[in-house]
Design a binder for these strands. Structure first.
Length: 156
DNA sequence: GCCAACGTTGGC
DNA sequence: GCCAACGTTGGC
């Protein structure tokens, strides 16, 4: 069964435009270093799942498009590259600690769904990302929320 | 096992 | 720039 997720990214680091410019419009989603998010990537995010691409720490804050999971959870090999910023010596090829997935761009919204738009819609106002102090970088999204975001983006 | 200190995230 | 929320670390 297809599920839905929201992936947060700071556009300074990696924006949806960067994804659009990537080879095959695909990217690896490495560097997640939080156990709760790791568990989701490792156990629950599946090929074909839908991803809402959210720009955090920017102006305007918005869901800017969607992507699709093209490769489910596999060990994050950057964790065992000593010179890499995502290096973590607790992880190794024998005992990987961190996981990553691959995603592919589906749509850049012509109308980004801003945080203020999300606030005004009864369904999207309840999304996890809207909660104060919501820091999880990989968040589950319900089918209703997925649908409501698409309506706000002008996609029916 | 508790919890204070600290660092980071991220909205405002 | 501020600060609340949260996760992690480390002393005890």
């Amino acid at each position: 069964m297809q599920r839905f997720w929201l992936f947060k990214s700071e556009p300074n680091t990696f924006s949806i435009e960067d994804l659009a410019k990537s080879k095959g419009k695909k990217t690896t989603w490495e560097g997640v270093r939080n156990y709760q998010a790791r568990n989701l990537l490792r156990d629950d995010v599946k090929r074909g799942d839908g991803v809402l691409f959210y720009h955090s720490n920017t102006d305007p804050l918005a869901i800017v498009g969607t992507a699709e999971v093209v490769k489910p959870g596999y060990p994050d090999h950057y964790a065992w590259q000593a010179d890499h910023k995502y290096f973590d010596d607790a992880s190794s090829p024998e005992k990987p600690v961190w996981y990553m997935v691959d995603i592919k761009l589906v749509t850049i919204f012509k109308q980004p769904v801003t945080r203020s738009m999300l606030t005004e819609h009864p369904v999207t106002a309840q999304m996890m990302v809207m909660k104060r102090g919501s820091r999880l970088s990989i968040q589950p999204v319900t089918a209703e929320e997925w649908q409501a975001v698409h309506e706000l983006a002008g996609i029916v």
